[in-house]
Every structure is written in C-alpha cells, then in structure tokens.
Design a protein around this nucleic acid. Structure first.
Lengths: 229, 229
DNA sequence: GTCGAATAAATTGCATGCAATTATCTATTG
DNA sequence: CAATAGATAATTGCATGCAATTTATTCGAC
C-alpha cells in the first residue's frame, strides 16, 4: 500500500483516531502550528484536517481563536442519543428485512475482535465498540446512512470521553451478541428492544460526570502518526 | 451589520445559495481560480468554501481533479429520500408532542412567503420550499436534527435539479398547509401520512430525467456575490 | 482522416510569508 | 496587594509562489 492518501488526509485520520480512542480529551487545544510541526507538514495541511474534523463535530473552531477537541454539553448529548436511537432503529428495520449474505458472519467476526481487544484493555476496544454500529450501518448499503451513523457514533464517543468513566468502553459486548441473534432471526421487535436498551445503557453511563485534565498534545500525536490499525 | 463573516464564509454562503436555487447545475466545474477571481479573493478562501460544501454533499472533490457541483445518481437519490422520510417522521413525532408557542404562526408565515415567491416564479421559491422543512426541524430545537435535515433537504434540491423538471419547485405548497393543520391538531397519524405522501410526490417528480447543459459560471456567480436575501 | 505520443497549458496540493486578531505578561497606580 | 493599562508574544486568516499532477493541444505515423 503506497501513500494513496494526501497529507491532510493522513493528519485527518490520525487526529480522528486519537480523538475517538480518547487519547485527545475534549477541550484539548489543537493549534495549527503544533500539529503541523508534529506531522512534519505545514499549517495549511493541518488546518485542512481540522476543518474536516469540525464538520464532523469532533472539533470546534472559533474564529481567530483556534480549534479544540469538541466539548459537547449534556443538552447536546441528549440530542445525539435521541437522534442516534432514531437512526439505529432504521438500521435494524432494514437489516431485518434484508441482510447481506455474509452479514451475520461479518458481525460475529467483529465481536470476536472486540473480545480480543477487551482482554488487552487497549484503547482500541473503545473504537471497536463504535465501529460495530458503523458495521451495522454498512450492511444496509446506504452510503448516507453510514455517514450519519458515523457522525452520531463519533459524537457519542466524545460524550463518553467527557462525561463517562475514563476509558470505559462504549458498549457491552454481550449486548452486541444478543443483537446479532435477533437480527439472524429477523425479529425487528426484539432487535429494536435490545438496541434501545443498549443505547440507554450507554446514555446512562454518561451521567457520572468525571473530569481530569493535563495532556501533553505532541507526545500523544506522535503515537498516532502511523495510520495503521 | 458589519462584515461579521469571514471571506470564506461569504463564498460558502453564495455558492451554496447558487446551487440550492439551481443556478449552478449538477456537474458544473468549480475551479478554485475562477471562484477566487470572481469574488476578489485568493484561491485559499475559495478552496476553503469548496471543502465545506463537499462535506455538505453539495460538491464533489476528486483529488487533483478539482471540484464540481455534485451529480447524485438515481441510487443515491433513493438513499436520500429513504433517510429523509425517516428523519422527517422523527420531526413530525416530536412536533406533535411539543410545539413551541409561536411555532404554528412561524410556519404559516413561511407558507405565505412561499406563496408570494411562487407567483413571482423566482428561483427563491425553490429554496423556500426546502427551507420550510428546515423550519420544521428548527422548531424541534435539536441542533443535530436541524443539521441532518438540512443535509437531506439540500441533497434533495440537487436531485431535483438533476432529474426533475427544470425550475420545478420541490414541494406543493398546499401540502405544506395541510401538514400545518395536522400539526396544529397534534395528529401524528395524519401528519406522517401527509409528509410521506408529500415526499413521495417529490421523489416521483425526480423520475423525469431531463438534461440541458452549457452554463457560464462566472456570470452566475456575479449574481450571487451579494449574500442578501 | 484517425489514432497515438510528445509537448504545452491549466489546475491542484502544499509551503511560506505577512497582516490582523487574540492571548499573555509586565508595570504602574490606587 | 488588587486592578488596570500598555506592551509583547502567540495564533489565526489570507495571499502568493512553486512543484506535481492532470488536461488540452500539437505533431507525426499509419
């Protein structure tokens, strides 16, 4: 795999991953200079990546005041989870109607990976938990739905990083397994119920307000420079 | 009102409006140079605006090949309308549960404006038809829902510009009136039915594939330089 | 006359530089 | 000692320049 992605793409991917794995915490300032220097590129590329992250809702850019990892409020958190329930119900409905041939296998395989990551207690598990839901959306085949689900899932990660217990995974893996079962049986009632319960559990976990600060940005970024998994 | 928006903001707004009013048709190339020259700024600002429009789905940027007004396929069109039905149902449900005090008045006022614009047969009517749906989303108070609805409505405009009859408004105003009635009565059943019918009508209108090309970009842009209504 | 290769023009990706805005520090005063 | 005003440093917004890639054009062969 040669460098098929442009420089700003690479920065975008690295920053995104760092945020989703909660290495960069909400509120962390992201100066264009530091990012550019760390990645060995100019501010222009860094700025580009920050703009895209802003449109994803992962960073907030205030005019003339720079970018920072977004700090969702509790009010915004409720909005995100409300809309996420709406969208994930749609996913479930569609998948109960029509599931791709290897869909179930792909889901099972993903959960296995989650289990491996969990016992390694790596920050990967946080990201994988979110990607399970993105995989569900991908099985519907709708690019737009994938895009929207990705947005709410990303924002959920951010909310957990802000309000949840530190390093808590987003989802219970067992609930993922139950959901797969219901999808295999094409039982939208049960599947929706599990999903609702699942998301409520996530939302409740966001109620224990917990805070600690003091990150050193550039060391974190150095760990995230390689875009590999 | 002094110039509170930055230069790239102004370009973003103008381009967006030009696309939504179907002055810039799908497929039209948008070179950074031309845009910058037309607006009297550098390529940097133009590029910035194009990046944001790309994340809205209004323009497509291919690496090293530049930006163009997005040309949604029929497949993507179906995805958009499917997801739009899902989201607008959510809007209806919420508004039937809780409608802000002046909500109905605002809706009626908007429809009146639509009627005025219609008899003037201006391209404004196209944009206003979409903004009715955005106004509905705004009444829910959820920023994220507003954002998502704006995206699908924008994409719908693009789809109509590509596949619909030229200069056809997106929506029937009478259906907007009926919908307001159902909302006033807090009747989610009726309201959802009207909305579904309404959106299906829009979708069907997109089945008459109609094409004509040959725009002169910079003259169009000149008309859209002033950001006023 | 058509097809294909080489060259020229146009366009993007990125880096750097400068002015403007914002944040931080210092010093002076009440 | 707290508070405020001024000055200094840091950071963003934007313009310009250059190399690399893409697109258009020209020229030659068949």
């Amino acid at each position: 795999m040669s460098t098929n992605l442009s420089r700003s793409d690479a920065i975008y991917a690295s920053l995104r991953r760092a945020i989703l794995e909660q290495a960069l915490k909400p509120g962390t300032k992201l100066p264009e200079d530091s990012i550019g220097d760390t990645f060995g590129v100019s501010r222009t590329s860094a700025r580009n990546a920050l703009l895209r992250l802003a449109s994803d809702g992962l960073v907030e850019i205030k005019p003339n005041r720079g970018a920072a990892v977004a700090m969702p409020t509790l009010e915004e958190a409720e909005e995100v989870f409300a809309l996420r329930r709406c969208l994930e119900r749609e996913v479930i409905e569609r998948l109960c109607k029509r599931m791709p041939r290897d869909g179930i296998d792909a889901l099972i395989s993903h959960v296995r990976e989650e289990e491996r990551a969990l016992q390694a207690s790596s920050p990967r598990s946080i990201r994988l938990a979110g990607e399970f839901h993105i995989l569900l959306a991908e099985l519907t085949g709708s690019k737009l739905l994938i895009d929207f689900i990705s947005q709410v899932v990303s924002r959920s990660s951010l909310i957990l990083a802000r309000f949840g217990r530190p390093h808590s995974a987003e989802c219970g893996i067992d609930e993922h397994v139950q959901l797969i079962e219901a999808l295999k049986e094409q039982d939208p009632q049960t599947a929706s119920r599990i999903m609702d319960h699942h998301l409520h559990a996530v939302e409740d976990r966001a109620k224990t307000d917990d805070k600690d600060d003091g990150p050193d940005i550039i060391e974190i970024l150095n760990r995230y420079m390689s875009a590999s998994d």
